[in-house]
């Protein structure tokens, strides 16, 4: 029973991270109708900037002699990481995607792969992040808050779930309660009509990329909290895999649908951790992709998505 509860907590925590990344995938797909393959690398960048910025702020790996950092340092690292990665997202959209606004979808997809490869390999250069494993800074003390049914709830879990929740609620308010949000929804409905209604489409698209990148950066930050220890900038696709699972979450929830991304994220997180706990654990990635294929077969528009009709 207690291991089941522990699995649930882990599933929800990771599901929250998937949801944050999935939001970026789904918003870009909703507006530009292409899979932003580089998004998982934005997430990776978030994790590595967390390490770098924490280093600048003097937080030591594993706590060092000074112990864990004060709470406001953690918040500062989070905010700075989000701002930095947001700027990177803006630049990428401006330089790589904007020139292709009228191009076929395939070209944009290939460009996204190009951006992804660039971020990965640029990050692996010696004078950027390198390929050596890096220890994570201790931003939170390893405190057990309370115990439920034999499972000790860690401060980290509460912080990760709490931050995800705050960001997701923020997105809900942004998209459904603000002027910018209604502009985003209008552009996602029809780029042309939105621009006829006087919406600055380029500005909305830039904004969407920046927001998506910031959420992925937050997910990267939270990932380093949840899984401290040695992080490795690897070429074997560990980071990309995490991002891809988030993408699967977006598709399962209904790509283009913001609430679907959150639902899909939690679902994929739970399914992954439950299947690892109760089925063969080596196949964890295969389970996630098997679910993707099942969804595409029986409900290609996703759980909350709507089927679209192509205009002829």
């Amino acid at each position: 029973m207690s291991s089941f509860l522990q699995t649930l907590i882990d599933g929800v925590t990771v599901g929250g991270l998937y949801a944050l990344i999935a939001l970026g995938y789904t918003m870009v797909y909703g507006i530009l109708k292409f899979i932003n393959f580089a998004h998982s690398d934005i997430f990776t960048l978030g994790a590595w900037m967390t390490l770098t910025i924490a280093g600048w702020l003097g937080v030591q790996a594993g706590g060092g002699a000074t112990g864990p950092a004060a709470w406001y340092v953690g918040v500062g690292v989070l905010v700075l990481t989000m701002v930095f990665v947001g700027v990177v997202g803006f630049v990428i959209e401006r330089l790589a995607y904007r020139p292709l606004r009228q191009a076929p979808k395939l070209n944009v997809l290939i460009t996204a792969i190009g951006v992804s490869l660039f971020l990965q390999n640029f990050g692996q250069l010696k004078f950027i992040f390198g390929t050596d494993p890096a220890p994570t800074p201790l931003l939170l003390p390893g405190v057990t808050l309370f115990s439920v049914g034999g499972v000790s709830i860690q401060l980290v879990d509460v912080a990760v779930i709490g931050t995800s929740l705050v960001l997701m609620l923020g997105m809900e308010v942004l998209i459904f309660r603000t002027r910018m949000g209604s502009a985003m929804r209008a552009v996602s409905f029809s780029t042309r009509n939105a621009s006829l209604m006087g919406i600055n489409v380029d500005k909305v698209i830039s904004f969407t990329f920046v927001i998506g990148a910031m959420l992925a950066a937050a997910a990267g930050f939270l990932y380093t909290l949840k899984y401290p220890g040695q992080l490795k900038q690897t070429a074997d696709g560990m980071w990309v895999m995490l991002g891809l699972k988030a993408f699967v979450a977006a598709v399962v929830g209904g790509i283009g649908n913001v609430r679907g991304a959150v639902l899909g994220g939690l679902l994929i997180g739970l399914i992954e951790y439950l299947s690892v706990a109760y089925l063969k654990s080596e196949y964890r990635d295969a389970y996630v992709f098997a679910i993707l294929i099942l969804v595409l077969l029986f409900r290609p528009e996703g759980i909350l998505g709507r089927a679209t009709v192509e205009k002829v």
Partner: peptide
Amino acid sequence: DSYRMIAYALLLIIIMI
């Protein structure tokens, strides 16, 4: 070698544009 993939990546983007 460490610059090879970076060059590929930039090449992809530039060709697409």
